[in-house]
Amino acid sequence: MATIALTQRSIVTTEVPWVRYTLTTLALLLIGLFLVLPLFTVFYEALKKGWGLYLTALVEPDALSAIKLTLTAAAIAVPLNLVFGVAAAWAIAKFDFRGKSVLITLIDLPFAVSPVVAGLIYVLMFGAQGWWGPWLMDHDIKVIFAIPGIVLATVFVTFPFVARELIPLMEAQGSEEEQAAMTLGASGWQTFWRVTLPNIKWGLLYGVILANARAMGEFGAVSVVSGHIRGETNTLPLHVEILYNEYNFVGAFACASLLALLALVTLAAKSLVEWRTEQLAAAARRDAVE
């Protein structure tokens, strides 16, 4: 596709070959240095001492429990933010009301707040010296230094992802289709399930993929509220740090490579979604022409 686009370009709207090659080389060099090299290093260090040690590091009980906790935290945080994202996008994109831009800025806030600050706020609220800490202690409810705290911190850092994908998408789509469905007698929920959801599903998926990657990889915020109990409250990124501090570099990079693998799967899934969206758009254009 790209080649066609290029050949279609007339000579005046592109650069002379040597400029093109220089720029391309420069860009590829940047990508190689900044992106490929770190990625390669993770796998290289993990496999340096062979597959045996690599796999042993991954099936070690503490690593397994870290993987389990990481998956649990993401499995709770992502659906919560998914529901929120759809609700927020519906309210913001389909209606006009005052204070909308303030609301959007507030939704974005967790994205810009330092993860360390995010961890701190939960310590201030639920810590033994915090607002509700003493009450929680008396009732034997553990929030920080236990799974709920880790989930809360994860929910906070992944808060805007789905909403940020859906709001512009739903704004661009407008609400004519929904209005048509309503006039034809569909109920609100029917309209949502049959009309809106199919329209936004790829954008939704995109947001979920990004939120999931962040949820599984969060370090700063979770580090503050985890308590670092081995086999209990260590997520995979925290486990990487611990192994690294134990001079167990193979183990650290083995767990890191698992997270990097997840990153690659995320990217692949993302490209697939993008590719689908493009195809759908192209099909829609063809239909429109016909």
């Binding site: 310590v123 639920f126 810590g127 033994a128 010296q129 915090g130 553990k142 920080i144 230094f145 109990i229």
Partner: peptide
Amino acid sequence: RAVIDGLE
């Protein structure tokens, strides 16, 4: 600090 904040 974690103990002070309630790590049991």
